[in-house]
């Protein structure tokens, strides 16, 4: 399975510029499907079965994409797609190590601290910054 995903990614061409927002949108969905299809091999390569499920990783990818949902410039979307494709290629070809994947996609940005409980919703920016670090 792993070889198939790698081969599929190898055969992906860098697409030309998207002509319209619809085309860019379609490409994003294609990219998401490709990423989801490579998830089984990724879990296999990095031994992720005991830390995360496939659906969790899927939603991690989705949230990464949703983070840029406000972008409407097709050129920017193409650039982001290119970066995503590169990242996916690196992951699938085992250019990363297990802790990279766990740190970036399993725990997430503020996963390690997990200081923000619902209780803190009313707290000031100062306190939120204080929990995340000394320099703000």
């Amino acid at each position: 399975m792993a070889t198939g995903a790698v081969a599929a990614l190898r055969n992906m061409k860098v697409a030309g510029n998207s002509k319209s927002l619809e085309e860019a949108r379609a490409r994003v969905f294609d990219f998401f499907k490709l990423a989801c299809r490579s998830l089984p091999s990724v879990m296999d390569i990095y031994n992720l079965d005991d830390v995360v499920t496939r659906s969790q990783l899927r939603s991690a990818i989705a949230s990464q994409i949703r983070k840029n949902s406000h972008v409407t410039n097709t050129k920017v979307i193409d650039m982001l797609l290119f970066k995503g494709m590169e990242e996916l290629g690196n992951i699938v070809e085992h250019h990363k190590q297990r802790h990279h994947i766990i740190g970036q996609y399993v725990l997430g940005k503020d996963g390690i601290l997990q200081d923000l409980s619902p209780k803190d919703e009313g707290s000031s920016d100062f306190l939120k910054n204080f929990y995340s670090g000394n320099y703000f």
């Binding site: 707290s123 000031s124 100062f126 306190l127 204080f130 929990y131 000394n134």
Partner: peptide
């Protein structure tokens, strides 16, 4: 953390 920041956070 810096001293005054700790006390400020604790006070909140």
């Amino acid at each position: 953390r810096d001293d005054w920041k700790i006390i400020r956070a604790l006070s909140e």
